[in-house]
């Protein structure tokens, strides 16, 4: 469009005729100039077509999604929930974290490990030192080899990590019909959809698979899981956990709490990060404002200068 308008303002035929005559002097740098320069209208057309193709394909591409897999293989896209802790100016709800940890301990921990989270990291976040020490001591850990080279057992310390439910991957697979329950330390960061996906998965088990859906033996139907057949069954039912703070333990409440807890497990630095972010943005905005002021202060004489041309005057 623009190209056409631009070219329309130029007398076409005159251009074409004259440019043919002037080719030798004008396009000394290239021999290709003669035939191309003689037909600017074709080029306008090409340019317009190219613009149309580029803009059209851009609109087309941004407008739709491609799926290499069928919707079932892809898994149902989770609903976007308004997570309070995901907002830029919000921290984790630490009571929810505490409830979520209770759900993890009483429900998830029988199959899923949380190997990157040590007992110490709970202190000051959702539990007191004494609570965590007691919790750590409930577990046994191997000692260093003693003088005889024997490895003994000792109660856990704050510096220990949460023990895994199975000795190794093979044991985990053997106990779960060949499926490996993934470690949950990074699950929120390591899955497309993050919190929304985990929440949808936990609460998305239908009572029965929909008509037409086939699920293999020992598998369960969940529309949010890629492939829809998941080895894990529905684990959250109303009242399966009794919250110590009296919150009614509905399925969605537990799912929400445990997702927030797993988000903390994946990003324990989030509260600090956002707090530091607010400080950084505040500070930098101030510095930016000052820098704009200094720049204008330094440049104002340049921007407001007047350049005068005094023609030479003959003095005779």
């Amino acid at each position: 469009m623009l190209a056409r308008t631009v070219l329309r303002s130029v007398p076409f035929r005159g251009v074409a005729r004259q440019s043919l005559n002037k080719t030798s002097t004008r396009a000394s740098s290239s021999a290709a100039g003669a035939e191309s320069a003689s037909s600017p209208f074709h080029l306008t057309l090409t340019a317009s077509a190219a613009t149309a193709v580029a803009l059209g394909s851009a609109a087309y591409l941004y407008g739709q999604e491609a799926f290499a897999m069928t919707p079932a293989e892809e898994g149902l896209h989770p609903t976007a929930y308004p997570w309070e802790h995901a907002k830029w100016n919000k921290t984790f709800d630490h009571q929810a974290l505490r409830r979520g940890f209770q759900v993890y301990r009483e429900v998830c921990a029988s199959c899923h490990s949380l190997t990157r989270v040590p007992w110490r990291s709970f202190v000051g976040v959702m539990h007191t030192v004494d609570e965590m020490k007691a919790m750590a001591e409930e577990n046994e850990y191997d000692t260093e080899p003693n003088d005889q080279g024997e490895i003994e057992k000792r109660p856990g310390k704050l510096s220990d990590y949460i023990p895994a439910p199975y000795k190794n991957e093979e044991a985990a697979r053997a106990a779960n019909g060949g499926a490996l329950p993934p470690d949950l330390s990074l699950i929120v960061k390591g899955r497309h959809g993050g919190c929304n996906y985990i929440f949808s998965l936990l609460t998305g088990y239908p009572d029965e698979p929909p008509a037409g859906a086939t699920v293999g033996a020992g598998m369960n139907f969940n529309p949010y899981f890629p492939g829809t057949a998941i080895a894990m069954g529905r684990v959250l039912f109303d009242g399966v956990v009794e919250y110590e703070d009296g919150t009614p333990a509905t399925t969605s409440q537990m799912a929400k709490d445990v997702v927030e807890f797993l988000n903390w497990a994946a990003e324990p630095e989030m509260d600090d990060r956002k707090k530091m972010g607010v400080k950084a943005i505040t500070l930098l905005t101030g510095l930016f404002a000052i820098s704009v002021w200094v720049k204008r202060y330094k440049w104002s004489p340049i921007k407001t200068r007047k350049i005068v041309y005094s023609p030479p005057v003959s003095r005779r």
Partner: peptide, 12 residues
């Protein structure tokens, strides 16, 4: 190509 066309136009 475009630069040659523009050279011509400027010259004309």
């Amino acid at each position: 190509v475009v630069s040659l066309i523009e050279n011509s136009l400027v010259e004309l």
